[in-house]
Design a protein around this nucleic acid. Structure first.
Length: 486
RNA sequence: GGUCGGGUGGCCGAGUGGCUAGGCAGAGGUCUGCAAAACCUUUUACAGCGGUUCGAACCCGCUCCUGACCUCCA
């Protein structure tokens, strides 16, 4: 299959035409969360953006195998290649078992992703579920001569690797600079080179998260899980590997090295990196403590927010910026997105109420082509949204009787909005109204209409203002009265 | 210090060597019992200084400011 999709590849730092290794199959691997704490909004942005990418690939007709891991072991606290991992530390803090921590935050993560209307990945493997695969990979890397064992811990030999491969291929850094600027770190005395990183880590006896291995009891290093799981489910070479930009310099660099050292191939053809969400121009991160939790956002219980914003408004806010740009988070920006989203989704709801004309004076073909052109240009969702507002304008105009559209064009408009607003952008109407609520509102609107006919405006205003105060907005027009949630 | 990005109107954010981004906010109007919505019209831009060019916000140089990564983080 042929498409005109271009993807910015971090490896080449250019947009490249997307040509899957085995069309129509596409293998997509995205580094998922480390589930030792609540995901914050910055984490969510990455997963929402890859949801957009996943959805568009599906829309183009590719058969996508989407793998996103859950890191539930092996992620070390601080920069030491020894000691406790994050789960053990958090477990002590919360007085839980490490696996209780994992379960708690995995469930929380899934809840949030569901609220954001993100499609679940096809496979969501965990590090603890793939210890054997990771041990096998470490064994192979040792066998190939790119690792060494010291006292129960196995290190990757970066210096040896550098002689044959380009270690800094993703970030283009100079190796000498890296060596000069890497600090003296813990575990240094065991490591031969200061850039070497742990593939397998010896566990302290009291450490509950440990498994037997040829090198004694221990647990896997952080980077090996993604290499092991991506090759298990997608093969040694697959199409797209993604993650946040912050992972490129270390995690992804080491992933490439591990896969090359083990399988002698580049793991991914295209590397995609999403940019950071910022607050007042500074990156939102766990360690900085400036992270917004999704529920603070939805309820408005955060000092920087004047009110709560719905998950769909927040998703729309994220989609209005390109995935490779930083996006600055503020109450004002969110407020603007909230209104923009409602304008878009209200127009979508109007599609069923359009009256066809014998003639048409709109150009849907050009508009549709521009929508595809936007997405084909490295998933440019902000431009897509700008085009979709053109469709919003047409829909409103037809509804007002100021523009004419044939039944065929109305169908095409409906398909366009279904494809892109619902399918690709993954937005949906948030009204949680049941049929009962719809019927109830129809009844109330009828009562109000009767009052209006009788010029009993006191009653009709009372109804309108009362509904408004509980979040339901009435809109009077020639055809009658429509309503939507505020 | 090294690597790589940014600086666009009141806000958020696209884009580009010549043609309106878009949303929000502001102003005026139409419609309407009022309101809201919608529709029409409209005001604010491309950090600074040089250079290349018929033409630059877009290319080049310098300056200033700023961010990310280089250490756990999507």
């Amino acid at each position: 299959m042929d498409s005109n999709l271009y993807i910015y590849n971090t490896l080449s730092r250019t947009k490249e035409k997307f040509e899957p290794l085995h069309p129509p199959l596409v293998g997509l691997y995205v580094c998922g969360p480390t589930v030792y704490s609540d995901v914050h909004l910055g984490n969510c942005r990455t997963f929402v953006m890859f949801d957009l990418i996943y959805r568009y690939l599906l829309h183009l007709g590719y058969k996508v195998r989407y793998v996103r891991n859950i890191t539930d072991a092996g992620h070390l606290e601080g920069d030491m290649d020894e000691g406790d991992d994050k789960f053990a530390k958090k477990a002590r803090l919360e007085q839980l078992e490490p696996m209780e921590i994992v379960q708690k935050y995995t469930l929380g993560f899934h809840d949030v992703m569901r609220l954001f209307n993100a499609l679940p990945p096809g496979i969501e493997p965990t590090a603890t579920g793939h210890i054997i695969e990771q041990i096998e990979m470490v064994k192979q890397i040792l066998k190939n001569g790119y690792a060494y064992e010291v006292n129960g811990t196995v290190y990757f030999d970066v210096e040896k690797y550098c002689k044959e491969f380009n270690y800094t291929i993703l970030t283009n850094r100079q190796l000498d600079d890296l060596l000069e600027n890497t600090r003296e770190l813990g575990g240094q005395n065991e490591k031969r080179g200061r850039l070497d990183f742990a593939l397998w880590i010896k566990a302290k006896p009291e450490h509950i998260m440990q498994w037997p291995s040829p090198w004694g009891n221990g647990f896997p290093g952080w980077h090996i899980e993604c290499s092991a799981m991506s090759s298990k489910y997608l093969g040694n070479s697959f199409d797209i590997h993604g993650g946040g930009m912050d992972l490129a310099a270390t995690h992804h660099t080491n992933e490439i090295a591990q896969s090359q050292a083990c399988n002698h191939v580049q793991p991914a053809k295209y590397w995609m990196h999403t940019n950071m969400l910022t607050v007042n121009g500074t990156r939102m991160s766990k360690s900085k403590g400036n992270g917004f939790l999704p529920h603070e956002l939805f309820t408005g219980s955060h000092e920087l927010l004047s009110r709560g914003y719905s998950p769909m408004s927040v998703r729309f806010f994220m989609l209005q910026a390109h995935y490779r740009s930083t996006l600055d988070f503020s109450n004002e920006a969110l407020e603007a997105s909230d209104k923009g989203f409602k304008r878009l989704i209200n127009a979508y709801a109007l599609l069923d109420k359009l009256n066809p004309s014998p003639k048409s004076n709109i150009d849907l073909k050009g508009l549709t082509e521009r929508c595809y052109a936007a997405m084909n240009d490295d998933f440019n969702s902000p431009v897509l949204i700008a085009e979709l507002f053109e469709a919003v304008h047409i829909i409103n105009s037809v509804y007002d009787g100021k523009t004419e559209a044939t039944a065929t064009d109305i169908e095409a408009l409906k398909k366009l909005m279904d494809d892109f607003v619902i399918g690709v952008l993954g937005l949906k109407e948030e009204s949680n109204q049941s049929d009962d609520m719809g019927k109830l509102l129809d009844f109330i609107i009828n009562l109000r209409s009767e009052a209006k006919v009788n010029k009993d405006y006191a009653t009709s205003d009372k109804i309108r203002i009362g509904l408004n105060s509980i979040g339901i907005q009435l809109k009077d027009n020639k055809e009658g009265t429509t309503w939507n949630k505020i």
